[in-house]
Design a protein around this nucleic acid. Sequence first.
DNA 1: CGGTATCCTAGTAGATACTG
DNA 2: CAGTATCTACTAGGATACCG
Lengths: 125, 125
Amino acid sequence: MANAKSAQACGCPVAAFQKMISGKYKLRIVWDLQDGPKRYSEIRTGLLRGSSGSAVIAPRVLSRELKALTEQGLIDRKDFGVVPPKVEYRLTRKGKSFVPVIAAIRNWGARHLAEANADQMVAAE
Amino acid sequence: MANAKSAQACGCPVAAFQKMISGKYKLRIVWDLQDGPKRYSEIRTGLLRGSSGSAVIAPRVLSRELKALTEQGLIDRKDFGVVPPKVEYRLTRKGKSFVPVIAAIRNWGARHLAEANADQMVAAE
DNA sequence: CGGTATCCTAGTAGATACTG
DNA sequence: CAGTATCTACTAGGATACCG
């Protein structure tokens, strides 16, 4: 794959979307941040609810995804500049506008993918 | 949080969704099939509209994605069993139910990702 | 606490050639 | 026409150690 701009300019938002959410935890991160700002370790811990095959998330991975989401303008990073470090991540307006899309995905997934165990409904979040 | 038996049943449809659409062309394929059945080469040609950096799609890749979508129950493969070969792919009911989700994605993407170049709007399909 | 620096593995996609 | 076989390049993700 050559270019980064080709996906956006091709008139196909789907490809751009695919690239935007490429990353194992990105959708979950945005979803988890809808309730308010969270710190780095809170996000990491939150992602372990129903962990997807791994017992712990490599910090390198989480760091990269958070950075990507920040550059894509979905989340905002707030460094308090104190010791010990305190950093909060929160949704931007763009990020908040994306939450309903994730809700649609979750809604569909709950109906078609989690037939046996719809423990927490979308509305119950 | 209720109990989770498997990765899919973890109350996180998002992860299952991510896995389901993992593949460069899956969303596009489903989207393109909403107008009716298409043959293998029609799908390939259709995917080249606004090609994402490549002039041609490796048959191996398209084949794998079609197979995966079939196994996931989103599309159905109909082999006419003639020579020369004729195979049609069409959406299943599950696949059709997924179209609105893609529409939501496209809609969001058109507003937030394709600000400069919204050549073909969602409604213009 | 919130990362970064390395190293490693596995999977995804592309190119190309070939087949029923 | 609709794929399969093979080989290669790239990258996402994981493990681990360490730093500001």
